Simulated scan of single mutants.
Amino acid sequence: MELVRRAGYDDDHATFRDSVRRFVADHVGVELDRWRTEGRFDVALLADAGEQGFLGTTVAEEHGGAGVDDPRFPAVLVEELARSGATGLALVVARQLGVVIPVVAAHAKQTEDAARWLSGLAAGELVACVGVLKPDATASAVPGAAVADLFVLADAERVVVVTGDVVTIEATPLLGGADAAVANVTVDPAVLAVAPTLDSVDQLYGALDLWTSVVSLGAARAALDLTVDYVQERAVFGRPLSSFENTRFRLAEAGAELAAAQGLLDGALDALASDGLTPELAAAVRIVSERVHDAVVDQGMQLHGGYGYMREYPISHAFGDARFVRVTASGASEPRTAVAAALGL
């Protein structure tokens, strides 16, 4: 249960969450082990989600969406995917809905390509990913790159969108995020030279930080729920593990920290809804969310004892996924730089 009522969420969000939760239960849980083995989620899932209207809530009606300018609806979808254990898929969807769609939507009225892409993204017919390019025009460990049709790429000065036919993909294994279809991306510098600039780098980094945080806290909530269930079922010296004071207090601390981080994130989503989100706030949310994610998963591993290292226990996947989220995010931006600058440092 939630310790506090989440600000900004109403009955419409609750109804949407119920629908998403049923969809995730029917389509994700039964396939997750296979996706982890294959190293990628099934892209047909996005078409199913698009058909249900889950992917285009913020997309204008003329492009096949619902036209509801409220980031809490896509946040609900991302949270529920993360809470199902599909952290890699959640990160891909978070970037598609929270980063790619706003970038493409800003240009949908100017170019036919952008309008077509936006409709495809809302319908789940296109998969998009986001990568930050190094000087050699490569981006490492990009979630979703192995199955993507569109690539939003940023270098030191600008953000561009290119299609999959002009990039080279190389699969790369990571600890955690086994369902994320991760790959390294290389693009010809000549292609980048003529690609139009679509967004500012600061806005992209802010969006990446915010939506990484949505994934982190959704996954942290899943890890906490897993651990609470485990300690209630596990008996030690003839008593439930949950009856020991140390267990109860450690999980109480984890729940309190998670609630505090969730409040900060919800405030940032509210700022985004009113066009008041700054890169500094998004960066601060990511710093806090990543630390809480790591702390909650670490506590869960400790309370599972030796069982926590066995792959048949979901907490072991949660542990690897926490590292996966942190590593892929660190490859894109450094949030402490933005916060330090805001402090005048």
Score class of each variant (00 low, 15 high):
Asn184Tyr: 04
Ala82Cys: 02
Val93His: 01
Leu3Phe: 07
Gly176Thr: 08
Leu32Pro: 09
Arg6Gly: 05
Arg21Val: 07
Asp165Gly: 08
Tyr205Ala: 08
Asp70Thr: 08
Ala146Gln: 12
Pro314Gly: 08
Gln52Ser: 14
Asp11Tyr: 12
Thr197Ile: 02
Gln110Arg: 14
Pro240Gln: 08
Leu174Tyr: 10
Ala180Leu: 02
Arg40Tyr: 01
Leu174Pro: 10
Tyr313Phe: 15
Tyr309Arg: 14
Thr163Lys: 05
Leu32Ile: 14
Gly238Ile: 14
Ala322Leu: 05
Thr58Phe: 08
Gly50Arg: 09
Ile287Pro: 06
Pro173Glu: 03
Leu192Asp: 00
Asp321Leu: 06
Gly53Leu: 13
Arg291His: 07
Arg326Gly: 13
Arg83Asp: 13
Gly218Lys: 13
Gly218Arg: 11
Cys129Glu: 08
Asp209His: 09
Ala90Glu: 07
Ala146Tyr: 05
Ala122Tyr: 00
Arg116Ser: 13
Val24Ala: 10
Leu210Gly: 03
Cys129Thr: 14
Phe151Tyr: 08
Leu45Trp: 12
Ala14Leu: 14
His317Phe: 11
Phe23Pro: 09
Ser19Phe: 09
Gly85Gln: 04
Leu224His: 00
Val214Thr: 11
Asp294Ala: 14
Trp35Gly: 06
Val161Glu: 08
Ala154Cys: 02
Thr87Ala: 07
Asp209Gly: 02
Val231Cys: 10
Ala295His: 13
Thr57Cys: 13
Leu226Phe: 09
Leu192Val: 01
Gln232Ala: 14
Trp211Asp: 00
Gly124Lys: 07
Gly177Tyr: 07
His304Lys: 05
Ala222Arg: 05
Ala115His: 04
Leu226Val: 09
Ala318Pro: 03
Ala66Asn: 04
Asp270Trp: 06
Leu208Pro: 07
Glu334Ser: 15
Val194Met: 09
Arg286Asp: 05
Leu175His: 10
Ala295Glu: 11
Arg72Phe: 09
Asp179Gly: 09
Lys109Ala: 15
Thr87Tyr: 03
Ala190Asp: 14
Arg95Met: 09
Arg40Trp: 04
Ala114Tyr: 12
Glu233Arg: 15
Gly131Ala: 03
Ala220Met: 07
Val28Leu: 11
Val292His: 09
Asp179Asn: 11
Glu280Phe: 06
Ser243His: 11
Gly267Tyr: 03
Gly88His: 00
Thr278Gly: 03
Pro135Thr: 02
Ser140Lys: 10
Thr57Trp: 13
Val130Leu: 04
Val297Lys: 02
Val152Trp: 05
Ala106Gly: 13
Gly305Met: 03
Arg17Thr: 10
Ala82Asn: 04
Gly331Phe: 01
Phe23Thr: 12
Glu253Tyr: 06
Val228Ser: 06
Trp117Met: 13
Ala122Asp: 00
Val167Lys: 02
Val132Arg: 12
Tyr313Pro: 01
Leu258Gln: 04
Gly50Lys: 11
Asp26Val: 09
Leu277Asp: 01
Val292Tyr: 11
Glu334Leu: 15
Glu157Asn: 10
Ser243Thr: 06
Gln299Glu: 15
Ile101Gly: 07
Val166Ile: 06
Leu210Thr: 03
Glu51Asn: 11
Ala252Thr: 14
Ala259Met: 05
Arg221Pro: 03
Val104Leu: 09
Leu251Asp: 07
